[in-house]
Computed example of a mutant assay.
Amino acid sequence: MTLTVREERLGAWWVLRVEGELDLVSAPTVRRRVHDAVAEGRRDLIIDLGGVRFCDSTGVGVLIAARRLLRSCAGRLRIILPPEAGGEGSHVNRVLAALGVLRLFEHYPDPESAARDAAEPLPT
């Protein structure tokens, strides 16, 4: 399965919609898209992981690096993790929770709720 990343604007936020497998082979694509967004001056970024069917430690590393990068330039990062237990994207939720890093991220069920500036993240 290949990885696709689509970009769109949602209010003040930029959304990277990631679909496919986020692994050793595809993670550099997501890393590059995050770096490109920051280089273009985008500081409010949502990474939508709802379409990610598989994520390995390399993918988790990219998410942590994105968080670090955005924090270093006074930016904000929010991620989308669908709440349904068997839905696409739930694999990422389980991986992040199992590794103990889910708490590092503001995560939401959909881009619209994440884009609200007063949005409250889902509990971890």
Score class of each variant (00 low, 15 high):
residue 89 G to E: 05
residue 36 D to E: 14
residue 24 L to C: 06
residue 77 L to N: 03
residue 6 R to L: 13
residue 81 L to W: 11
residue 124 T to F: 11
residue 55 C to P: 01
residue 120 E to M: 04
residue 64 I to H: 11
residue 75 G to W: 11
residue 78 R to F: 04
residue 56 D to M: 00
residue 62 V to G: 01
residue 36 D to Y: 03
residue 51 G to P: 07
residue 103 R to S: 14
residue 60 V to E: 10
residue 13 W to V: 01
residue 34 V to D: 03
residue 58 T to N: 10
residue 30 V to H: 00
residue 56 D to C: 08
residue 84 E to T: 09
residue 36 D to S: 13
residue 17 R to V: 09
residue 81 L to G: 06
residue 67 R to H: 15
residue 105 F to L: 00
residue 101 V to C: 11
residue 17 R to Q: 08
residue 59 G to R: 10
residue 32 R to Q: 15
residue 113 S to I: 01
residue 118 A to W: 07
residue 63 L to T: 09
residue 29 T to D: 14
residue 40 E to P: 05
residue 14 W to P: 04
residue 38 V to S: 03
residue 40 E to Y: 13
residue 15 V to S: 08
residue 66 A to E: 05
residue 49 L to D: 10
residue 97 A to C: 11
residue 102 L to M: 12
residue 33 R to T: 07
residue 112 E to L: 06
residue 7 E to W: 06
residue 101 V to N: 12
residue 85 A to M: 03
residue 74 A to V: 12
residue 100 G to N: 13
residue 64 I to Q: 13
residue 92 V to F: 10
residue 122 L to C: 01
residue 103 R to W: 03
residue 18 V to I: 11
residue 24 L to T: 07
residue 24 L to R: 06
residue 27 A to V: 07
residue 84 E to N: 06
residue 24 L to K: 03
residue 53 R to V: 01
residue 7 E to G: 04
residue 99 L to I: 08
residue 95 V to K: 00
residue 57 S to W: 14
residue 40 E to A: 14
residue 107 H to M: 02
residue 42 R to K: 15
residue 1 M to K: 06
residue 121 P to K: 11
residue 29 T to C: 13
residue 100 G to T: 14
residue 77 L to M: 13
residue 113 S to R: 09
residue 97 A to E: 14
residue 66 A to N: 09
residue 56 D to S: 04
residue 113 S to V: 11
residue 124 T to H: 09
residue 50 G to P: 00
residue 76 R to Y: 04
residue 5 V to Q: 02
residue 102 L to S: 13
residue 49 L to T: 01
residue 46 I to P: 02
residue 71 R to G: 12
residue 119 A to F: 01
residue 48 D to M: 08
residue 74 A to H: 14
residue 7 E to S: 15
residue 79 I to R: 02
residue 120 E to F: 05
residue 116 R to W: 07
residue 94 R to E: 09
residue 14 W to G: 12
residue 12 A to L: 13
residue 42 R to Q: 15
residue 122 L to W: 02
residue 93 N to I: 06
residue 71 R to I: 10
residue 29 T to N: 08
residue 104 L to K: 12
residue 42 R to W: 02
residue 26 S to R: 07
residue 36 D to I: 07
residue 8 E to D: 12
residue 13 W to D: 04
residue 105 F to H: 09
residue 115 A to D: 05
residue 74 A to G: 13
residue 64 I to Y: 05
residue 118 A to Y: 02
residue 31 R to I: 07
residue 92 V to A: 09
residue 118 A to C: 05
residue 100 G to D: 10
residue 5 V to D: 04
residue 91 H to F: 12
residue 21 E to Y: 05
residue 13 W to P: 08
residue 90 S to D: 01
residue 95 V to S: 06
residue 38 V to T: 01
residue 29 T to F: 11
residue 116 R to N: 13
residue 72 S to F: 00
residue 71 R to V: 13
residue 111 P to H: 02
